[in-house]
Design a protein around this nucleic acid. Structure first.
Lengths: 184, 184
DNA sequence: GTCTATACAGTGATAGAC
DNA sequence: GTCTATCACTGTATAGAC
């Protein structure tokens, strides 16, 4: 039960930061070493598959977070409060636009093909969970799908633009707007 | 006046494709060599500054295209037809969702800082030009800014999602939706 | 479990022949 | 203008001492 200071789970969020900041290709082992304070030997002890396994672990970690704090509530809780919770969770997770979406970033370049299932699943389940909540809230099936898509791609685009313009406040404005659009 | 077969301008779009596909870090010189059919010697003849100069040239090329076919019409032409033209141009340029936005992709990772001005300018001028057209069309200043932002980040997000889900049709749906939202 | 040392491929870049 | 050869360097990954 006693936990060593550095467990695999402890180092994953740090590695995630490096991937978020530099992308998959730009996240060199030396940068990861620097960020985590772990030598290559230790890193390969935790992740025998090397960089690819690190990215897989990071993606699983992100997925787990969203599954727990966003998707599952959307599927189970009262629709209105679950949707409200989603906006709050998203704003918090992406640090009000100061943080980038790792999955979205991976999706854009050649990295996508390496983590196809994880990337696809992340967005697909997000859209489906949100659509479910909207349907339960009384929206028609087709309209709910479109609404859910628009909310999710709106969030992604707002993150891109906020980072491109170095204007995190844009993210907050965008979330407000998207929230109103959803009307729930 | 006689043009050699391979001019700098001829090779820029090919290099752009490599950057779009693999990102800045992933676009190795060997991949660029392969795509263009030019050896490193030739590439460095055209771009003495190496990879960074190639990316700068590519960004300038993209910018020029948007300036000519999107921004300038938005500033000068009849607002309604200019906006309609924008949607058509965007759909064509991004191959109905099959192509990614290079500027958006650069914006997401550590590459951003290398090309700060180009990335910032691309989005800033897009939003401003669109806002101008909306204002001329009768929309209030503040609302026009928000609308313009929403259209631009909506496009970016739709590109991310279309690529993530390998579903180009999502891009077309999204454009339609954004177009209706703009209401012009 | 963590480190250092090292292997080896691939990187961006340069020089010089043609 | 294009190529080949080569450079110094960094990349990921491995081996083995502690």
């Amino acid at each position: 039960m006693a936990r060593t200071i550095n467990e695999r789970a402890d180092v994953v969020p740090l590695i995630a930061e490096v991937f978020r900041e530099f992308g998959y290709e730009g996240a060199s082992l030396s940068r990861i070493t620097e960020k985590t304070g772990l030598g290559k030997g230790s890193l390969y002890h935790f992740f025998p598959g090397g960089k690819e396994e690190m990215a897989t672990a990071v993606l699983a970690d992100v997925d787990q977070w969203f599954e727990r704090f966003v998707y599952e509530p959307l599927r189970q809780d009262d629709p209105a409060s679950a949707v409200a919770g989603m906006w709050a969770a998203v704003d918090g997770y992406f640090r009000s636009g100061g943080r980038v979406c790792l999955v979205g970033a991976f999706a854009l370049d050649g990295t996508r093909d390496m983590f196809s299932d994880a990337i696809d699943g992340y967005f697909r389940r997000w859209i489906e969970a949100l659509r479910d909540a909207l349907v339960r809230h009384g929206r028609g099936d087709k309209a709910a799908t479109m609404d859910a898509e628009e909310a999710v791609f709106g969030i992604q685009g707002a993150l891109v633009l906020a980072r491109a313009l170095r204007d995190p406040s844009l993210f907050g404005r965008a979330l407000k707007r998207l929230q109103l659009r959803l009307g729930v």
